[in-house]
Computed example of a mutant assay.
Amino acid sequence: MLAFHSDAHSLALPPGHRFPQSKYRLLREHFEARPGLLRMQPAEAASEGELALAHTPDYVEAVLLGRLSAAQQREIGFPWSPQMAARSCHSVGASIAAARAALAEGVAANMAGGTHHAYADKGSGFCVFNDVAVAARLMQAEWHRRRRQLLRVLVIDLDVHQGNGTAAIFRDDASVFTCSIHAAKNFPFRKEPGDLDVELPDGCGDADYLAALDATLARLWAREERPGLAFYLAGADPHEGDRLGRLKLTTAGLLERDRRVLTALRERGIPVALSMAGGYGRDLATTVACQVNTLNEAARHWSLWRDRQAMEE
Rank of each mutant, 00 (worst) to 15 (best):
L38F: 15
M311C: 05
N293G: 15
R152T: 05
H17K: 09
M40I: 14
T286P: 00
H90P: 00
P82G: 07
L254A: 08
H117R: 11
A298S: 12
R147E: 12
L158P: 03
F170I: 03
R67V: 01
L254T: 06
V155R: 00
F170E: 05
A102C: 09
A211S: 06
F4H: 07
A45S: 14
G77V: 05
S6D: 10
A136D: 07
A94M: 07
D242G: 08
F189R: 14
R74G: 00
R171A: 15
G36K: 08
A104Y: 03
A298L: 10
T286S: 13
A184Y: 04
P271Q: 10
E44C: 04
L284Q: 13
L200Q: 01
F31N: 04
A285E: 12
D7L: 03
S47F: 02
K191A: 10
A273K: 03
S124K: 13
V60I: 04
A99T: 03
P35W: 06
N130V: 09
E313Y: 10
W80C: 07
A183T: 05
A94Q: 03
D58V: 15
E192V: 15
R190A: 10
L51H: 06
H117S: 06
L2Y: 14
K248E: 07
P238Q: 00
R152F: 12
L255S: 11
Q309D: 11
D307G: 08
V160M: 09
M276L: 14
A252Y: 01
D214Q: 14
T56M: 00
G253T: 13
L27N: 12
R74E: 13
R243S: 11
V198G: 02
R306F: 04
R219W: 02
R260I: 07
R28S: 08
L13S: 06
P227H: 07
H5F: 15
H301T: 13
